[in-house]
Design a protein around this nucleic acid. Structure first.
Lengths: 208, 208
DNA sequence: CCCTTTTCCGTACGTCGTACCAGAAATAGT
DNA sequence: ACTATTTCTGGTACGACGTACGGAAAAGGG
């Protein structure tokens, strides 16, 4: 068996190289030619391992998803989901391109599926339906992505032009203040978010 | 005054054309050549009105931001912020490219600044600091973007391959169910989100 | 040794953003 | 009216992108 010319590389090598580039220089730097030269191959050789660039990004998302800290489920859905959210946050902080890569992705990889499965299992004690639990997971993930994006862009002056104090008094005052310390806030915000989401979802399904 | 050859178009015309294309065919369809032919100009003529494509997208975001329903502030921060969130949601549903365009944007346009100013004013009765209020607005906006993205992609089969029931039991069960009705949920979720965020922020600033 | 199978990768096409610049069209000064 | 000056116009072109195509190269099976 194993006829034909043997591959010089593996799909995993390609994905790893792509992740390394994205970690160092952002998603935009992940071009087919760049990844190819990084592993010492011709540009077109990549297509042996990966059908398109878009699919490569799917694989990258799934790859780093597999490196997330595994959460032991305790049966306490609040604690479990909070731990999952924390794990997600750590993942996104380690791979800053992840939040921007997440939207519009197909949920195709095994690690992503395992993540969803885990979230669904964590929410099982709530008694909510599967579809509702799925949406809650999407909302929590979206929240974490939002939060991390906000964390990563902290300190960067977002406004180029100076704002007119007369026209935008609150804005002017807010910019005059120093940046707040965000570090200890995430757990409390996430905990409350999760609790509130589930509570609302329960009320809603009970009343309809 | 007004020396030199007069412009054949205006920046507003360019931005309007770009928004129309994005509404109809998505952000990716907004190319410089495409926008140019749409207003009957040569591709390079656009650069008289707009420095780069990226800046054009900034302008698009600000432009549609100006079309959002204006919210009358009542002094009740819960109701006011909920109304703002609802207005944002309507905006994103009308311009589905908006959620994906929002991250990594410079907050440069007057409409965007006015939106922030309005949010800050709405949160003023909470007594929170300007920087904290700013972050709350970013989180609420992020939540709305997440929610709308989820709404827009509802019904689309996200998973290409069939999932193995043995390996992913919860996932299999969730897919077997029908999609839930989401329509009446937004206001309750957003209301609770806003209330909870402010409560947490207050607790945090009080204890530190 | 050749034939089949598979991978490798140089070449090339279409598209993108946009730099450059010669021509066109307007006003201001004479 | 003529010229100088300023401004907008858009053709051409460059480099980078994703990737289709197809021959060369490398392995095993007969």
């Amino acid at each position: 068996m194993a006829r034909g010319r043997p591959p010089s590389h593996t799909r995993d090598q390609v994905v790893d190289a792509a992740v390394a580039i994205a970690d160092a220089e952002g998603l935009a730097a992940v071009t087919m030619r760049r990844v190819a030269t990084e592993i010492g191959a011709g540009a077109m050789s990549l297509y042996t391992y990966v059908p398109t660039r878009d699919f490569l990004i799917d694989l990258m998302v799934d790859r780093v998803g597999g490196t997330a800290a595994q959460v032991e489920l305790t049966g306490d859905w609040r604690a479990d989901l909070l731990a999952i959210a924390g794990s997600q946050r750590a993942l996104m902080l380690a791979h800053p391109w992840l939040p921007s890569a997440l939207p519009n992705r197909r949920l195709t990889g095994r690690n992503t599926l395992a993540y969803l499965e885990r979230g669904l299992a964590a929410l099982a004690p709530t008694g909510l339906g599967g579809a509702t639990r799925m949406e809650l997971i999407a909302l929590v993930t979206g929240f974490v992505a939002s939060f991390v994006t906000s964390e990563l862009s902290a300190g960067v002056p977002q406004v180029a032009e100076p704002v007119s104090p007369a026209e935008f008094p609150h804005l002017t005052a807010a910019f005059a203040e120093g940046g707040p310390v965000r570090e200890p806030t995430f757990e409390r915000l996430a905990d409350w978010m999760i609790t509130g989401l589930v509570t609302q979802a329960r009320d809603h399904s009970a009343s309809s």
